[in-house]
Design a protein around this nucleic acid. Structure first.
Lengths: 209, 209
DNA sequence: GTCTATAAGTAGATAGAC
DNA sequence: GTCTATCTACTTATAGAC
């Protein structure tokens, strides 16, 4: 184990390739991005295959890019275990919704890449992993939080499964509309939007049942 | 004006090319779809350029595909002017939400294509037109409907701009999660989801203010 | 670890026979 | 309106000098 043909720990260039790969695959899609383009982006002379000293193929770079992003998201999840602490109420939910939008913003390249490549059958296992991470885990965290809140009587009485699905879908839709169209849906900004979501979730003043 | 080099009204094959173009661009992206592939899909011998008797370039096909879809959506909009009639209430909104999801399903290839190509700078004017059609018009129809409903006192009192943005984002998010991940967010089906949206919108029993 | 050079394949597009 | 044949450019990837 002296030096693998294409070993795992190169230096700066490898990291630059991962960064450029994420950005370019996200912007132009996997097919739309050539290795020459990637090489040029990191300062290598394009078309001379120096890329292949770092990754054995374009597919290998794609896989490494997605795996690195998955790990990034995982480490955030662990760090943000503070989710279910603190006093439940308007302000807490408002901040959590804003944080969700910010988190999506932070991984927008990953989301974009996912949108482009998903369903094409190119990286099925990778895409399945992303789905589990982004969608399934996200909804389930929301759901458990809402269940706890309802017991405390701060939220309107409603199936927590459905409420969490709606809140999640809503944030996802808002983010994607923003991302793809570069504008806020209906001219409603983040603060108004998240405030509105909280308003809908909370028990209305004087509600009887 | 006897016969343009690549004239506008060919026959069956041209339509087949438009159909195949929509499907393939949506599935594999513009860059990911080769002219050979398109030719094969409509029964032409691939790689022999018969495609170019119908469209002067791959870009030209893309443009024609999107324009045809835009017209399709426009004609629906006109036909569905019945939106703002009928008795306002739970059942009406429930059906309208379901119809929105069905409409998105019906143009999912267009949406997918949009998601893939938007922001790449390849067809800027085309994408801007789509945005106006799908997002801006959609939200504004919702908004006016809600304004009218609030006056009648069936909806909770809330900024109609924000409510319509939330409802729209929510439907878009639900649809996209479904489309990209092939499953319902949080295992909530359409009926439950739309029912939940209505529940959130309506005035709660016994709400005072 | 980057460069020169180049192989082998595929892409978009055109000319002309039928 | 489809086919044969072909041009040019670009793509992924490799071999080997430095």
């Amino acid at each position: 184990m002296t030096e693998l043909a294409v070993s795992r720990k190169h230096g700066e260039t490898r990291d630059k390739l991962l960064d450029a790969g994420l950005r370019l695959f996200s912007e132009k899609g996997f097919e739309g991005t050539s290795v020459m383009h990637i090489e040029a982006a990191v300062g290598l002379k394009p078309g001379n295959g120096s890329f292949y000293r770092h990754f054995k193929s374009k597919e290998a770079l794609m896989e490494a890019v997605v795996r690195r992003e998955i790990e990034r998201v995982r480490s955030w999840r662990i760090a943000a275990a503070g989710f279910s602490t603190g006093e439940r109420g308007r302000e807490k939910y408002r901040q959590e919704f804003l944080q969700s939008l910010e988190a999506m913003e932070a991984i927008k390249d990953l989301i974009n890449l996912l949108a482009r490549e998903y369903g094409q059958g190119r990286f099925p296992e990778l895409m399945a992993e992303l789905r589990a991470l982004l969608l399934d885990e996200g909804v389930s965290v929301f759901r458990e939080e809402y269940r706890a809140s309802m017991k405390q009587g701060v939220l309107r009485e409603m199936d927590a499964r459905i409420l969490s699905s709606i809140m999640m879908s809503s944030l996802v839709g808002y983010h994607l509309a923003n991302m793809y169209f570069g504008c806020e849906p209906g001219g409603v900004n983040r603060e108004e939007f998240t405030e509105g979501l909280v308003e809908l979730m909370m028990k209305q003043k004087g509600a009887s049942s």
